[in-house]
């Protein structure tokens, strides 16, 4: 009897968790579809969009730039050490360029921006929810999804490719500095090697990834903020959930996009 009861509770718990997951996925899908549709329907809030572009794009530059610089530098050292095992040290410039543009630029840049932007967007919107500012928007005939979510989604989707493009350049520079300064590469040869091997597809695939990551970052920040629980605890949980879910979704989306672009 006891065993049966425990079993029943276990099945019920699994069922409840599954239902909860489905409900959450459905709610996210509806939220995302609704918000995206608002991006294309007037009225447009250009002031809000500009502010978000500045906040998500411009103010993330130092974070993305420094991440790329150190990653490019470390990558150069690793590839040199690895390449030395089969006398292929000369591949450093090309592998650094490909590694940065295809993978590390967008993924690490995306993760860093996720930590910065998802958290602040979630905290801001959750606070607005808790203090009834979102209700106030509705009573002032303004759709909160259109006013708050759509500009953030658009700004992040456009800002991330630009950020990552700058990050790519800085990352390659990081590899170049280490290559020339520590590994005794010739400056001209390093640059020539980089440019000869790098293909347009390497860069554009990374930028497409960045756009998707930007969308994920803003979406998770807005979603968790929008449906935040009450009080300070609700805001805290919304912030954590936004960063964690954005990071995981970026890594998962990265795998899928890599498979689409480069998997045969």
């Amino acid at each position: 009897m006891m065993v049966l009861g425990t079993l029943q509770r276990l099945v019920a718990a699994v069922g409840a968790a599954t239902l909860g997951l489905c409900a959450g996925a459905g709610r996210l899908a509806i939220f995302a579809a609704g918000s995206v549709s608002h991006v294309f329907r007037p009225p447009f809030y250009f002031g809000e969009f500009g502010r978000q572009l500045l906040r998500i794009g411009y103010f993330s530059l130092p974070v993305v730039g420094l991440t790329a610089l150190f990653t490019g530098a470390a990558l150069a050292l690793q590839i040199y050490a690895g390449g030395a095992r089969f006398n292929a040290e000369t591949v450093v410039p090309s592998i650094v360029a490909i590694g940065i543009t295809r993978e590390l630029g967008p993924v690490l840049g995306g993760l860093m921006v996720a930590g910065r932007v998802s958290a602040s967007v979630a905290a801001e919107i959750a606070t607005m929810r808790v203090t009834e500012q979102i209700d106030a928007l509705t009573t002032l005939s303004t759709n909160p999804q259109k006013y708050l979510v759509a500009p953030r989604l658009l700004a992040a989707t456009l800002a991330l490719p630009a950020l990552v493009a700058v990050g790519d350049a800085i990352g390659i520079l990081g590899g170049f500095l280490v290559g020339v300064g520590r590994l005794n590469f010739n400056e001209g040869a390093y640059m020539k090697n980089t440019l000869d091997f790098l293909e347009v597809g390497d860069v554009t695939s990374g930028l497409v990834k960045a756009a998707v990551f930007g969308f994920i970052i803003a979406l998770m920040g807005c979603y968790h903020g929008y449906f935040s629980g009450r009080g300070a605890q609700g805001v805290g949980r919304a912030t954590t959930n936004a960063v964690v879910s954005a990071s995981i979704m970026i890594l998962a989306a990265n795998y899928m996009l890599t498979d689409i672009f480069f998997g045969n």
Partner: peptide, 20 residues
């Protein structure tokens, strides 16, 4: 609903002013 809301005004408990 928008047309209705244009006829309403509301004062919230915590004022609910937009911080930004």
């Amino acid at each position: 609903r928008d047309a209705l809301l244009n006829r309403f005004g509301m004062l919230f408990q915590g004022a609910a002013l937009f911080d930004s």
